[in-house]
Write a protein that binds this DNA or RNA. Structure first.
Lengths: 207, 207
DNA sequence: GACAAAATCACCCTGAAGGGTGAGGAATTA
DNA sequence: TAATTCCTCACCCTTCAGGGTGATTTTGTC
């Protein structure tokens, strides 16, 4: 079993129970089922699910999208919308809440399983971590960055000082300085913070 | 019309044409249709689509997942898998390629539309940009960070020097220094790069 | 072995960052 | 009004980063 805890927020008991069964079958744990927004908030606070299945249209105080807003603000856990219709304006409202998935009813076990798997995986990948890939970097930079320079770039990225790097790599402080200088030339920057900003920039855009 | 250019990679001509029609109806532009991986690669190189609809099972040299790998390596554009089945191992292989969506056949116009919209939106949001949110930050930090300090933190994040910040904010260099010092105390760091690293760290984890 | 590329190190100098202390003025609130 | 918080600024001092130049050694490749 995966042990992934799922909160189901769905005001239609029949569908909710169907989902619960499906989740049982595909090895997810249901941390709770909420029929309205009040229970949903309570469940979120008390049972800390790993992911939320969220019906967009709840016949309660808050609808799914409002709950999503709150999840983003308070909990930062991924959620997947369930909806029986998907008009333009709903999609527009919904997408601004950055759902990790969107399932249009009717859906079957496979839909649920794959969407959950992908959503969880994407979520863990979506954490603001910069993909530090030498090859990718070299395809976007003036001169080729060498292996050692790359290691040093990572250390800079991690907030290390030149002294710390020297100790860590067992080489002279002067050597570190040389590498850093060459790195700056290649990245076309002049300070370490600029180098970091450049890294972000380069991994953000595609040519 | 949205003007979003979609590449369809699907070896079954009937389905491919159906998708093309659907996309026309929902205001997406089809940049090309590829029936095998060779054509797909060519289309990717020549027509620079904004997003790719990718059949997992292609009867050609590379399957959809291999194409996805290549997209990640070379183009970094979002893609959505289309598949008629979704067994455990396929899902496992697929999710490592970080698709922005996953549609299980049969699907209808609504599925396609919402998945495309969400995928595109999530993609633009997923760019490694750190969500700099003062409230969120303050919930994770020793002492409360003030508005001005926050502005300065953003400037540091962007690679600015103290001098540049002083000019930009029309205040004295000494004042910037004071703010920076206070900021370091609150973030429990000692250098700007450490502050940036701390920011990444804090926006990566949820309590 | 010759050559090129990468890694190693040194020295010097300037400027920026980091850290300590103190202090005045504005705005908010008790 | 007194207290508090925040923003503002100054001075001093130490450390670190950044930039220029040049040199040796190691490594891999033709």
């Amino acid at each position: 079993m995966s042990g992934i805890r799922v909160l189901v927020v769905e005001d239609e008991p029949l569908i909710a129970e169907d989902i619960r069964e499906t989740l049982d079958n595909i090895d997810f744990e249901v941390s709770g089922v909420a029929y309205d927004s009040d229970i949903a908030l309570q469940e979120l606070a008390e049972n800390t699910p790993d992911i939320v299945l969220l019906d967009v249209n709840l016949g309660s105080a808050m609808d799914g999208i409002e709950i999503a807003d709150l999840i983003n603000k308070k909990y930062q856990i991924p959620f997947i919308y369930l909806t029986s219709y998907a008009d333009r304006s709903t999609v527009d409202r919904a997408k601004h809440t950055r759902p990790m998935g969107y399932i249009v009813k009717p859906f079957d076990d496979r839909d649920l399983f794959t969407t959950l798997e992908i959503a969880l995986h994407n979520f863990s990948e979506s954490q603001p971590k910069i993909e530090l890939d030498l090859e990718l970097l070299n395809s976007k930079v003036l001169a080729k960055i060498t292996q050692k320079e790359f290691e040093i770039l990572i250390s800079i990225f991690e907030g290390k000082t030149n002294r710390q790097m020297a100790d860590q790599h067992f080489i002279s402080l002067n050597t570190i300085k040389t590498h850093v200088k060459n790195l700056y030339d290649k990245l076309d920057v002049h300070t370490r913070t600029q180098a970091i900003a450049k890294l972000r920039e380069m991994s953000s855009y595609h040519a």
